[in-house]
């Protein structure tokens, strides 16, 4: 029946169009009859076409102004709710916690990766001040976003039972506002970081060796590399470039409701933000571990900008060799600085 109706309607429309073409604009003004108008001629009080419109999620006429006020039923919210409250919260929580446990176990088994040779006491410059500033702005804002974001997602399940409603609402309010204002700072620092570091993160032939030896992570062997090894490069491209920019872009969409985005856009942005955020937070734990507890001398480089020659030789041999050859040359960002920079 419904099929027949549409066929007839099409024919009718075609006929009307022909008439309009033949007789000019006088006829063209008539709008085609609605599905409902046709339906109620055949089946009075059958509102099926209207119920379809109600369900369509499309905007209809209303005098009330606002975001999607003409929409009667938006179904996407149900999907969003099911995904966010269901698998994303559950598996996101499991994976994040599993990484914490994994790192604790790894630390227990492997301990800190120490230098094999004694320190020389001679320092060479690894990072310029600008490089360190962009790294720490990014790192600190990231940690703030991580803690505040985690509280918005898991706080209801973890903190609320402990804090009670009033206190938790204050904490969540503070977190929400901090998150929303620190977010743009994070994005700017990421962009600056990418500009400063991209040239030393381009893949090189030597990376194949690192991949073959799995970075020497298990064997404890030192695999030579240029300024950054393949592991660091992967974190740069995956964690900083891809994930941080994805999370940042979706965060911007959520952060500026003044552009009156519809609900579908917000639901999608939240899902992208959540999934991307959970992955990058989980991976960042491994990066933070190796940069602090996991490896002797790594933190020093980013703190002071200088590393011991022994550390440079053991972890980034090719960079160290090139830097030695450049001795006496003008200081280049990230390269070995002139002998003046060699401190004892």
């Amino acid at each position: 029946m419904a099929y027949d109706m549409t066929v007839w309607r099409r024919l009718l429309c075609a006929l009307l169009t022909l008439c309009a073409l033949a007789f000019g604009p006088a006829f063209a003004a008539d709008p085609p009859p609605t599905d409902q108008a046709l339906r109620q001629q055949v089946q009075p009080l059958n509102n099926a076409p209207v119920w379809r419109e109600v369900r369509s999620g499309e905007a209809h006429f209303t005098t009330v102004k606002g975001v999607e006020t003409g929409v009667l039923i938006q179904s996407g919210g149900q999907t969003w709710r099911a995904l966010r409250n269901g698998p994303i919260t559950l598996y996101g929580g499991i994976v994040f916690s599993a990484m914490l446990v994994l790192l604790a176990v790894f630390f227990k088994l492997r301990g800190q990766i120490r230098l094999s040779e004694p320190k020389t006491g001679r320092l060479i410059q690894r990072f310029t001040t600008l490089e360190r500033m962009s790294h720490w702005t990014m790192a600190i804002s990231f940690c703030v976003l991580m803690v505040s974001g985690l509280i918005m997602l898991f706080g209801k399940h973890v903190l609320l039972p402990v804090f009670g409603y009033s206190l938790f609402a204050v904490v969540a309010m503070v977190c929400k506002n901090i998150h929303n204002f620190v977010g743009p700072v994070f994005i700017l620092s990421v962009l600056l970081f990418i500009v400063l570091f991209v040239k030393d993160n381009v893949w090189q032939a030597i990376d194949a060796l690192w991949i073959r030896k799995a970075g020497g992570l298990l064997s404890g062997e030192h695999v030579p590399s240029h300024r950054f090894n393949f592991g660091e490069k992967t974190w740069f491209w995956l964690g900083v470039v891809f994930l941080s920019l994805t999370v940042g872009a979706s965060g911007l969409v959520l952060n500026f409701p003044n552009f009156e985005q519809g609900r579908a856009v917000m639901q999608t942005a939240n899902l992208v933000h959540l999934i991307g955020g959970l992955i990058v937070m989980t991976l960042s734990l491994a990066h933070i571990y190796i940069g602090t507890l996991g490896m002797e001398g790594a933190l020093e480089g980013m703190q002071t900008g200088y590393v011991d020659e022994t550390w440079a030789k053991e972890h980034h041999e090719l960079w160290y060799d090139a830097a030695r050859q450049n001795q006496g040359m003008e200081q280049t960002p990230g390269g070995l600085s002139a002998p003046a920079a060699v401190r004892t």
């Binding site: 009859p33 209207v50 209809h60 006020t69 009667l72």
Partner: peptide, 18 residues
């Protein structure tokens, strides 16, 4: 606006408001 009225097929036959 805590309540609003939405009209389908506004101004043409088959109009329904909710």
């Amino acid at each position: 606006n805590r309540r609003r009225v939405v009209t389908i097929n506004d101004g043409v036959p088959g109009e329904r408001s909710m």
